[in-house]
């Protein structure tokens, strides 16, 4: 009988899937497995795909993955969709676009709801990356929610960030959220078969002339693709590899990953603190009482927070 760790390392789909569920549900058992998996990670190239809704992120990931599969790469795909803040439910439909990849044994696709996280990611995404990395995936593609908000968190997670644009959406580059523009390592102008694609590329080029590269200190490249014409995906893959090589040559990978693991650490601490505050019955009641006091102006929120902290540190 193999341990969960061994099963994950062997790429057992069922074991991977169940561990992901366990980390999504903050199960304590999962934490122990996660501790032992970490030393097996660091191999996968993590690619984030973000951009406006309706830009064709899923189709792009499908086409790009098909190119990567032809080169023999093993792929993990994390597709994130919004969780309803009211019902807690989510409709996850990104697999529709994945075609024959959906039963390719070397492709593992997981759909996730945001479950209350902002910034276009899901709270468990960091653990899922670790799991897929340990399971031997060469590439992990993360598709953010894409509701047109500034989904900039992806840059702290991914080695390479792809920002997807389409011609005719919002007319001008200027209207795209500035944050989104600054995180791109690669811009993809998708639907290049549509009128206005050349204009979008031209606008992007002039944008890049004035904007100094920020996060990765390398001037972003622009790739045109078309799902309809099955065009540009080989080129995109090549650009992704070039970017990864650039990162590796300049030790930037380490820099990138330091950023990610800092986020991971903060996230673990945040979860634990929240757990401490909300999981203990006694403290939950205290919180409730404090909130009431704040509402009735008996207390200010800062003093209330002090009370909670001092009872935690005790």
């Amino acid at each position: 009988m193999k341990t969960v760790e061994q099963q994950i390392l062997a790429g057992d789909q069922q074991a991977i899937a169940r561990l992901i569920t366990a980390v999504e549900n903050n199960s304590p058992v999962a934490i122990d497995v996660m501790r032992s998996l970490h030393r097996h990670t660091g191999h996968a190239h993590i690619i984030g795909v973000t951009g406006v809704m309706g830009g064709g992120k899923s189709s792009l990931i499908y086409k790009l993955s098909s190119v990567m599969r032809k080169k023999g790469l093993k792929i993990g795909i994390i597709a994130i969709d919004p969780t309803s803040p009211f019902t807690g439910g989510a409709l996850l439909g990104d697999r529709i676009r994945m075609g024959e990849l959906s039963d390719d044994p070397d492709v593992f696709i997981r759909s996730m709801g945001t479950r209350g996280m902002l910034g276009g990611l899901s709270g468990a995404v960091y653990d899922v990356i670790e799991i897929l990395d340990a399971a031997g995936k060469d590439v992990i593609l993360i598709e953010t929610v894409g509701v047109g908000q500034a989904e900039v968190d992806i840059v702290k997670v991914a080695d390479t960030t792809i920002v997807l644009l389409v011609p005719g959406l919002g007319d001008s580059i200027q209207t795209i959220k500035a944050g989104l523009m600054e995180i791109a390592d690669i811009f993809v102008v998708n639907k290049a078969d549509k009128p206005g694609a050349d204009q979008t590329v031209a606008e992007l080029e002039s944008f890049l002339d004035v904007y100094a590269p920020t996060v990765s200190q390398r001037k972003p490249v622009i790739v045109s693709t078309s799902v309809k014409e099955n065009m540009g995906f080989e080129d995109l893959h090549e650009q992704i590899q070039l970017h990864y090589m650039f990162l590796q040559k300049n030790e930037k990978v380490v820099e990138k990953r330091k950023i990610r693991y800092e986020v991971v650490l903060v996230e673990i601490i945040r979860k634990r603190l929240m757990g401490l505050i909300y999981d203990q019955k006694r403290l939950t009641q205290t919180v409730d009482q404090l909130v009431s006091d704040v509402v009735q102006r008996k207390l200010d929120p800062y003093t209330a927070a002090d009370t909670i902290f001092s009872s935690l540190i005790k």
Binding site: A17, T87, L92
Partner: peptide
């Protein structure tokens, strides 16, 4: 009703449905 629903889309083979069920747990 608060569930997480994965929608497969049309024209799924039994293999695709089961692989999806496994990966999505």
């Amino acid at each position: 009703a608060g569930m997480e629903v994965i929608y497969s889309g049309l024209h799924q083979t039994a293999d695709q449905i089961i692989t999806t069920a496994i990966q999505e747990d």
